[in-house]
Design a protein around this nucleic acid. Structure first.
Lengths: 235, 235
DNA sequence: GGGCCATGGCTGGTCCGACCAGTTAGCAGG
DNA sequence: CCTGCTAACTGGTCGGACCAGCCATGGCCC
């Protein structure tokens, strides 16, 4: 849908949207706080009010602001309202909320990976299994760069989700991918020295053997191991 | 965020947005098909082009259309792009895709209910457990109307999610709620004669006893039982 | 005749300035 | 002090103009 980082900034509206979004997501503008009026924003950023309005319309659709005729436009009380579209930016910003959400995302990813593996063990056709095996084999190659490993890992996850046929999970996959690609450096560490494709291989073998339980466990273990690095907070 | 059915239709932009959204989601306009030009839409609907543009901006943010300067504005190839915001409308429309997504949503709901129950068994404080018990007790009352039962069920789910502390799950809860409230009649059947709060009670008891496995199983069983009604397709 | 490319007429993007419609805060009167 | 009106905000809609990118058409060159 809406173009991301580079493309988004080619249009006047896109630039303004990005600027305001950063201000909100980074906390420069706090939840509940009122934005300047449309006319003021237009003057400050030297654009037309129509342009400001289009940018605000996007932020509104992202659930980042609430607009009321007559009253001031305010930063939404609960960022993360109904839309997940703003999530990549939120995590990339690295704020408190961003980090928390990043952890939550990892948690869900682990759960869903396990689920997908179980379903795949029941549903996978030979062609899909072969594709998964191929990806797992590529992941096991020595000397893989972190970037390449990450790409393969994502493709593995996506293929697994496709097997389940669940459209919403596919959407979730896309979301995770967006988050990661938005702040790649933050996550590449996971694919460094200590990365191992062992779990993937175990999972695929279990899927081929139609052993749902083992498949699920393998990928849950993988997700758990990937969670250990830097971001770890006390409970 | 954006006002729903009644409120959304009070502004000119809101009415137009709703009209176009219905046309897209219902399949009147097919994926990939080009919309009329902004100028044509403005004339057809007897509104200003600016108004049309604001409506299109919303649909774009929902991921329902793709806009390219110079080229035509088209219905997105893959409805369900990155945004879940259009989902309630999609399910309410009752099209093929809507029904499929409805099933997928149920599937995920079951998975997540079970997960939440397990987490809750580990994390729940006494106050939260008490609140869950209260809700379960209310659900067990005889003579509950389907509407009331549904409301309580949702509150139960939401409370459970809150205990886990996962922000994204909270978002998911909200999404499920939106979908249900958008087409209530479609789902109220689940809370009719055969509805039983037995699973809820079992889950709460297990949570109190810190028995994660039983808690998870209870709610997974509940979700599975709720899945049986009308919408059931061959694989 | 076939292929290349200039161009005109479409598309959306931005700007301007005006007026309508709610909200709110402050002032006047009770 | 409280009430109620009003004026000065806020966002919402309008219209019309021009800029910028895409694309199909048609003429030119090979």
């Amino acid at each position: 849908m809406a173009p991301r980082s580079p493309a988004e900034q080619q249009s006047v509206t896109g630039r303004l949207t990005a600027t305001l979004q950063r201000a909100i997501v980074s906390g420069k503008l706090r939840p509940g706080e009122a934005l300047p009026s449309e006319r003021a924003l237009a003057e400050q950023h030297e654009v037309n009010r129509s342009t400001v309005r289009e940018a605000l319309r996007r932020l509104e659709a992202l659930g980042l602001i609430t607009v009321r005729q007559g009253g001031a436009t305010r930063v939404a009380e609960a960022l993360l309202s109904t839309s997940l579209a703003a999530l990549p930016e939120l995590v990339a910003s690295g704020g408190r909320l961003g980090l928390k959400v990043q952890e939550d995302l990892h948690e869900l990813r682990g759960l869903l990976l396990g689920f997908c593996a179980e379903r795949a063990a029941h549903l996978a056709d030979p062609a899909s299994v072969a594709r998964l095996e191929q990806l797992a084999a590529q992941l096991a190659q020595p000397g893989l760069t972190p970037t390449a490993a990450q790409a393969l890992d994502f493709e593995f996850f996506e293929q697994l989700v496709r097997v389940t046929g669940n459209q919403l999970l596919l959407l979730f996959t896309q979301l995770v991918k967006d988050v990661y690609f938005r702040a790649p450096k933050r996550f590449l560490g996971l694919y460094g020295e200590r990365f191992s494709a062992e779990h993937h291989a175990r999972a695929v073998a279990a899927i081929r053997a139609r052993d749902a339980q083992s498949a699920g466990e393998a990928l849950r273990a993988y997700a758990a191991s990937a969670l250990s690095p830097p971001h770890r907070k006390a409970h």
